[in-house]
């Protein structure tokens, strides 16, 4: 009697489990399908225009022909500039938050603020960047203003990933270091940072991927509609991939004719982000092995 009862329970458990598995599997494949659909759509449409010329030539004939070289270079400058700004500040802020501030109201407040910062729509960052960097500080529409704006956008991400990386370093290593008479800073520099480094780098590269695709923050701060020359200083305007894509899809001289170029640009952008993600993984693995050995 009892055994049959148990049997029934375990059978119904089994059914529930199978049903749940089925739902998860369907959802999982659904998401994968969408992802593959988007990717293959862009690849099929974009692959035909991609050539050496496409990535090394200036746009021609009202951006319906030629390449996207200045937009690629512009995006690279902006990414580098924003990281130059966000990385040191973000990492130092995270070290301060995780290693120096003890848990309390102040820390909760700062964390709340950084979290909120990352929830602000990027167009608002663009507006703020225009008001502060372009106008108030007088940088004008420039790579500097655009980099700083993108840097602000990346800052919460850098802070959060660095904090997570620091938190992942087990306290026993800190205690061992203190126990040997090391100071706090020695402990951070010689034990904590090297151990957290692989994950910090991962966070950095992921935020590069994020920043390189942003349109709104650069809209009012740096992006040029059409600029068939490379920037020569940080006070120059520049073209950028996401904005270029926006322009030739909405307000180009001939939208229909620029379509292939738009897909090519999208593909290049996706490739950059993809390469960043792969690089992040590879670097994390590499440094993880290296940390053990140093």
């Amino acid at each position: 009697m009892e055994t049959t009862n148990e049997n029934r329970i375990s059978k119904s458990k089994d059914r529930h489990q199978k049903a749940a598995f089925f739902v998860f599997a369907v959802l999982g494949y659904f998401i994968v399908t969408i992802l593959i659909a988007i990717l293959s759509f862009i690849v099929i449409k974009g692959a035909s225009v991609i050539s050496w010329d496409f990535i090394t030539k200036m746009p021609e004939e009202g951006m319906t022909k030629g390449g996207i070289y200045p937009a690629i270079i512009g995006t690279l400058y902006l990414v580098a500039g924003s990281m130059l700004f966000a990385f040191p500040i973000g990492v130092l802020a995270a070290i301060y938050m995780n290693e120096y501030v003890s848990d309390g109201v102040a820390k909760k407040f700062i964390r709340l603020m950084t979290n909120n910062l990352s929830g602000i729509p990027s167009i608002v960052f663009g507006l703020f960047g225009m008001a502060l960097f372009v106008n108030k500080l007088g940088f004008g529409d420039s790579i500097l203003a655009g980099s700083l704006t993108l840097g602000l956008l990346a800052l919460p991400v850098v802070i959060r990933t660095t904090e997570e990386a620091l938190k992942a370093v087990n306290d026993t290593f800190r205690h061992a270091s203190y126990g040997l008479g090391a100071t706090k800073w020695q402990t951070i520099r010689r034990v904590v940072l090297p151990m957290a480094f692989p994950n910090i780098i991962t966070g950095l590269i992921l935020s590069i991927g994020r920043v390189s695709g942003e349109t709104a923050p650069i809209l009012f701060t740096v992006a040029a509609y059409f600029l068939p020359k490379l920037p020569t200083s940080i006070f120059d305007q520049a073209m950028a991939l996401p904005y270029h894509l926006y322009v030739i899809s909405t307000s180009g001289t001939n939208i229909e004719e620029s379509r292939p170029i738009a897909y090519g640009t999208a593909l290049i952008l996706i490739i950059i982000v993809l390469v960043c993600n792969l690089l992040a993984n590879a670097l994390r693995k590499y440094f993880n092995n290296k940390v053990k050995m140093s």
Partner: peptide
Amino acid sequence: RKKTGMVFQKPNPFPKTIFENVAYGLRVN
């Protein structure tokens, strides 16, 4: 803390070489 050596519940060598683990306390001092 230099006057006292501490050994913990779980072995917790640093992710460094065997040599650098032992040298650590000297270097930080």
